[in-house]
Design a protein around this nucleic acid. Sequence first.
DNA 1: CTGTGAATGTGAGGCAACTCACATCGGGTC
DNA 2: GACCCGATGTGAGTTGCCTCACATTCACAG
Lengths: 248, 248
Amino acid sequence: MVVTGVPQDRTGDARAFSSSKLSVLRKHPIFCELDSAALDQLCRYAKHATLKRGATIFSKGDPGNFLIAVVSGTVKISVSSPDGRSAILNLIGAGEIFGEMSVLDQQPRSADATANTNCEIFIIDRREFIPFVRSQPALAMKFIELLCTRLRWTSDQVEQVILQNLPGRLASALIRLTEKHKVAGGGRTIAVTQQEISEMVGMTRESINKQLRVWSTRSWVRLEHGAIVVLDAGPLQALAEAGCEEDD
Amino acid sequence: MVVTGVPQDRTGDARAFSSSKLSVLRKHPIFCELDSAALDQLCRYAKHATLKRGATIFSKGDPGNFLIAVVSGTVKISVSSPDGRSAILNLIGAGEIFGEMSVLDQQPRSADATANTNCEIFIIDRREFIPFVRSQPALAMKFIELLCTRLRWTSDQVEQVILQNLPGRLASALIRLTEKHKVAGGGRTIAVTQQEISEMVGMTRESINKQLRVWSTRSWVRLEHGAIVVLDAGPLQALAEAGCEEDD
DNA sequence: CTGTGAATGTGAGGCAACTCACATCGGGTC
DNA sequence: GACCCGATGTGAGTTGCCTCACATTCACAG
């Protein structure tokens, strides 16, 4: 029901991870300003787990009893229709947390979370976490910021999907993804498959592929296996902002 | 830039509104648990204003220096593309608040807000409000809940727009709107025009009209001027959950 | 009760994106 | 290196929704 097919902390010794837990949590923007004592307490709550690609972390409709910090790998947040199509709402990478919404508002999970690659995660239980938040007032403000970030991301997605056509949506998605992993320099590699992009923008893989091919002949992007490299963000930015214009 | 073409509190006497302010704010789920002293303080911060239909409250990209409580009327939260098409992200009715996101995270407005009907509103400035929130720890938790509600609403919208076809999207939108103004009883009237619905689901008014006509012949809905009455939510619910199925 | 503008109703024709049906490529594993 | 499977590339035919171009109805102001 919770983490399926996943042995939890095979060492059996929680302290074996406590130093790495500390260093991982300390780096997270949500927790980085906590004092050592608080971080230490949080580490004791955090349970370590490893997941195989494809493992279900939670499903839409589940009660939301825990939040998750991703140590390595990526997690896919998605919803799916009865006929098998699915929409990717977000991809959560190393150093990010997710699943906080249901923990905070006690409502059921609003989407599915699955391991998109093999993953290493920390699980923090609601029963321990909520009192912890109450004891750390600054943490509530951090969560407000996090929720605002999520809301902006999701609103952007609505805006694109409703207002833009294929080239515009794809360009917007690429820009959003390059901005997420803010790396300096011109060529930004986005580690997603074309299938994944297609599920993020709500169009078919075939259509996405054809558009990307066009752009690759113009050297706006380079296509690799399991990745897209944005070579020239300029024209893509222009397309993303144009709303529903031509691509040619 | 802020409230355009709007005389602010024409009486010139803030106290003339203080009792009504109090009664309005007290009713709001965000503020209802505050003690009288705190509510009183909040009322002193709240500036009263009336807006004509179509008035701009804020625009996408503006700095977010105030939050708004709607006393009467409805406010439209929308984004628009350069070619004039627009997408409605939310409709805010009497008793609700909006514009909190930019106030909380200090980022620019992510959408436009305009008076969808003549409105009466309270404006609360960020400079006064943020210290107030910090002095009322319970209020932060309330805002976390509010943001979670917004996030669920917006995620739902993404899900619908990506996964569903016209009948499914329209059905989902109608269900969501009936649930928002939770009124007991079978026939629920939704006070929106077909144009507005079309901008919420991202399809043309013509397409929406044709679908609604089909449903009205089956007595699932009744069409009125500026409103849609849901007579039988059952089949609509089924369509909304079916994802991308037929409507017949 | 008459004019006016917003909201609604309806049809004909077009096209962007989908569906389906493949071929190809790459990176693993045995 | 032989196999396999997931990812990518590509074309031909189909369709759901859009576009455009109107008629009609309602609400309200004068």
